Simulated scan of single mutants.
Amino acid sequence: MSRGLVHALAWSLSTGAAVTLSWWGVHSVMAGTAYDRPRALPITAQTATASPPGPPEATSTRRTPPPSPTPSPRMPGGPASPASPPPPASSAPAEPTPSPSPARQDASGDVRGYTVDGGRVVFDIGASAADLVSATPEAGWQMQVWTQPTWIRVTFTRDGREVSVFCTWHDHPPMVQFDER
């Protein structure tokens, strides 16, 4: 009887040690994959009196001071309008519309902004690749960003609803597509 208890105790200890070691290894690997949410950069419209475009105002290593708040019924970066009516509530999905964004005058390409239900996404689209400039969720929406060598996906979610903006450039020039579920 005592021999059986010794075997059961040895088995329990070795199994517990193996499970603990496995959990610790998986936990340390998974903890290294988490990332901070990307910060959205404000897009400011250039005025007719502005100087010619120069280098970008903000980069990943240098931040500009926050702009002074101005009363506007729209999101920062969008053109301010006196009173824009709320979008009509309908069961048919609204088509996302590209909105004008100031274009940088460099070799990287053309900066284009897209406003969809859930937020706004801005891409710098070149001849053979694209970069994410900013992604800003609307109030109450969550956002996730995936970046791969040949595509970028930004997904806005709220209450089981999902709106995705894809920019792909595998074997073709960059193109932007939308998916709503």
Rank of each mutant, 00 (worst) to 15 (best):
M1W: 07
S2N: 15
L9H: 12
L9Q: 11
T15Y: 14
G16M: 10
A18E: 05
L21W: 05
S22T: 11
S22Y: 14
W24N: 10
M30E: 12
A31P: 01
G32N: 09
T33H: 08
A34K: 08
Y35D: 11
Y35Q: 15
R37K: 05
P38S: 09
L41W: 03
Q46T: 07
T47N: 12
T47D: 15
T49E: 14
T49N: 08
S51E: 05
S51Q: 08
S51P: 04
P53W: 01
P56S: 09
T61Y: 15
T64F: 06
P65C: 08
P65F: 07
S68H: 06
S68N: 08
P69I: 07
T70A: 13
T70K: 14
P73Q: 11
G77K: 03
P88H: 04
S90E: 03
A94W: 11
P96H: 10
P98Q: 12
P102Q: 09
R104F: 05
R104L: 12
Q105N: 11
D106N: 15
A107E: 15
A107R: 15
D110Q: 11
Y114S: 02
V116I: 06
R120Y: 10
A127Y: 09
S128H: 08
D131T: 02
L132G: 01
A135S: 05
A135H: 06
T136H: 05
W141H: 09
Q144W: 06
W146C: 00
P149V: 11
W151L: 14
W151F: 15
T157W: 03
R158G: 01
R158W: 02
G160A: 14
V165F: 00
V165A: 01
F166C: 09
C167V: 04
T168A: 12
D171Y: 14
P174E: 07
P174A: 03
V176I: 15
V176N: 04
V176W: 01
Q177W: 02
F178W: 13
